[in-house]
Design a protein around this nucleic acid. Structure first.
Lengths: 194, 194
DNA sequence: GTCTATATTAGGATAGAC
DNA sequence: GTCTATCCTAATATAGAC
């Protein structure tokens, strides 16, 4: 039977994704990547020019994956409120935080235009997608008129990103859940029965 | 005339505060601290046992300062909504992010009980203080009944922390302002004229 | 208290053999 | 493609002189 082993470049990228999520760019060393990928020094430098090139590949892939995951909730069935709630309430490994948002705290990521670009694009896409859903809700009479899509969408995304901060500070996912609960209660007050 | 020069320990702590804010624990080296503080190697190790002890002093001080700053808005004049708005809208160096919240993305901080404790305590205090203000607002008839203080407070703090993430991702403070605007618009809808 | 030496390990990569 | 050898700098201290 055919055994689909991941290629060395793929294993290296995946290991880098893991480490960037856990420790950030500054805290991730080439040696740690090699160890986690089960690849040798020479192997890594054969496939990639160095840490920064690997990081770019990893961040790009993580960003794609996040869009796909978020899309599952946002493009699902239900009213506008329900889809936003589905996004906020979906299963998460809260204490690990967001693999994309986390990178914004890394000085080297923010300083590197190429590394920051996919991070920016992903969060901008997320805000835009949620704003479009809010707009649908306003147009369909689900949200009360005067509900401004872009600010509400920014608040939704910020609540998630900030929820991770609260959870990691307290060592418990409860704080994340609380923040989401708070935002949803405020948002629910802007809906009308339709 | 008396010239109040900061003591070497104080300069070391302040330099560490700066670097932890900018680069996190993992990204901050003893050498960088010494350079920024204008202190020698031996001097630093004379006053502190090492990086971790210095970091603890710095984090503790940063946490105190954050409470004081937040208190200025939250304990100020005005209605409950106005004080929360004052907190959300106060002058900030948005692109630098939160010196306390930032630390939650650092694996070594989260792993170290002593370092995480002041971070946790500060954010918990902030949530509690805001929840108390929301409760006042409910009791005084300013917020509609059924407004649940703790979740709303968590959402407020999460919006700020997440707003920093959005701002740093986009390289502009506009995203932070948007998120705050969105949350305030939702919160305003829960107020009644009194 | 501060300085200079010294030590050990890791970070980040290049060179060339296999 | 992968491995080992080698290189240079930084990280994080300790030791002892001044």
């Amino acid at each position: 039977m055919y055994t689909p082993v991941m290629s060395t470049p793929d294993r290296l990228i995946e290991a880098t994704q893991e480490l960037l999520w856990e420790r950030g760019y500054v805290g991730t060393s080439p040696k740690a990547i090699q160890r986690l990928a089960g690849a040798g020094q020479g192997s890594m430098y054969h496939h990639f020019s160095g840490k920064s090139e690997l990081a770019l590949a990893a961040v790009t892939r993580t960003a794609e994956e996040m869009r796909r995951t978020a899309g599952l909730s946002l493009d699902g069935p239900g009213s506008a409120y329900e889809r936003i709630a589905a996004y906020l309430l979906r299963e998460r490994d809260v204490l690990r935080g967001c693999p994309v948002g986390r990178l914004t705290m890394d000085p080297e990521v923010v300083a590197d235009e190429a590394l920051r670009a996919p991070v920016d694009a992903t969060l901008a896409w997320l805000r835009g997608r949620i704003a479009a859903i809010v707009q649908e809700g306003v147009d369909g009479g689900e949200f009360v008129p005067g509900t401004d899509p872009a600010p509400v969408a920014a608040a939704v995304v910020a609540t998630v990103q900030g929820g991770y901060v609260l959870a990691r500070a307290s060592g418990s996912s409860a704080a994340f859940d609380r923040a989401v609960e708070g935002l949803l209660s405020l948002l629910a007050a802007r809906t009308r029965q339709i």
